[in-house]
């Protein structure tokens, strides 16, 4: 059976199943749908709880952040672990330190953009943009509580700022700023920070990731602010890991694991 026919059959069957399910969906945008406000006659859904109660408990107006980093912080920790795992998998696949592998780097690629042009237009733009991108990324991390964004987006942007350097110049420039050693260390460190915020409450006798109890350590007034500040800490951890791994993935992908040269 050719893949096209097989694909068509698979697609048709899946599509029918999915559409069968859709036939029963609540109307798009219905605030009374079970997902938005709970099953009829049942308890209100968790989303209502978050909207109504979470601010009082966490003092974080951005519901996405409070749910992400606190209520479902366990998910988020593993989301970061997924990133780390992907990074490690990519290193395991690509990273090669052997010297004799000339073919790995490939023949020296002629840059598609001429040298001067590259230096003047792209390089200069990048030099101007990178600090701004970085400060914006840090802003995004720090203000995840109030505005969209958070550790993950900030981390990606930080990583992207280094990718930008690598794209504009070459990989060595970027690696000079953010070496393999440091990104490997930061990747682990990020999750250690995250999990550390989870383990410290355990030491204090509460459950994993129970930030409320951290008020003793963070010296905040009340568990709410402890949660709020812990979320920031957790987001910083996420940002570190994501930044490191995003850049590392690019570095490895663009150089076929040799970390030399670049695109």
């Amino acid at each position: 059976m050719s893949p096209k026919i097989f694909a068509s059959i698979a697609v048709v069957i899946t599509g029918i199943v999915l559409l069968y399910g859709i036939s029963d969906f609540p109307t798009f945008g219905d605030p009374r749908s079970p997902a938005n406000s709970g099953v009829e006659g049942g308890a209100p859904s968790t989303s209502l709880y978050y909207i109504n109660e979470s601010y009082g408990v966490t003092k974080v107006p951005n519901l996405v952040t409070s749910v992400l980093a606190d209520y479902r912080g366990y998910d988020t920790m593993f989301e970061t672990v997924v990133v780390l795992a992907a990074g490690m998998a990519i290193f395991a696949i690509l990273r090669s330190t052997t010297k004799d592998d000339e073919t790995v780097a490939g023949p020296a690629r002629k840059s598609s953009i001429d040298g001067d042009h590259n230096r003047i237009i792209v390089g200069m733009t990048c030099r101007l943009a990178v600090p701004v991108v970085q400060i914006f990324a840090l802003y995004v991390v720090a203000h995840g509580h109030y505005s969209p964004g958070g550790g993950f987006q900030g981390g990606v942007m930080l990583g992207a700022s280094f990718i930008l350097i690598a794209l504009a110049g070459n990989l060595d420039d970027a690696l000079g700023r953010f070496s393999e050693k440091s990104y490997m260390a930061l990747a682990s460190l990020g999750i250690i920070i995250y999990a550390g915020f989870g383990v410290v409450p355990q030491v204090l006798g509460k459950n994993f990731l129970d930030f409320g109890v951290l008020q003793k350590i963070l010296l905040t007034d009340g568990p709410e602010m402890a949660r709020s500040h812990s979320m920031l800490g957790v987001e910083i951890g996420v940002a570190l890991t994501v930044m490191s791994i995003m850049f590392a993935i690019f570095a490895n992908l663009s150089s076929r694991g040799t970390l030399k040269g670049g695109l």
Partner: peptide, 28 residues
């Protein structure tokens, strides 16, 4: 409803992680 947003942040991350691994495999 914030819950799907939270879930999908995770899913996007997972997606890009998978993509990275797959592209690495493609190169190899």
């Amino acid at each position: 409803n914030p819950v799907p947003h939270v879930l999908m942040l995770t899913a996007i991350v997972v997606g890009v992680a998978t993509l990275g691994v797959a592209l690495a495999l493609c190169e190899m």
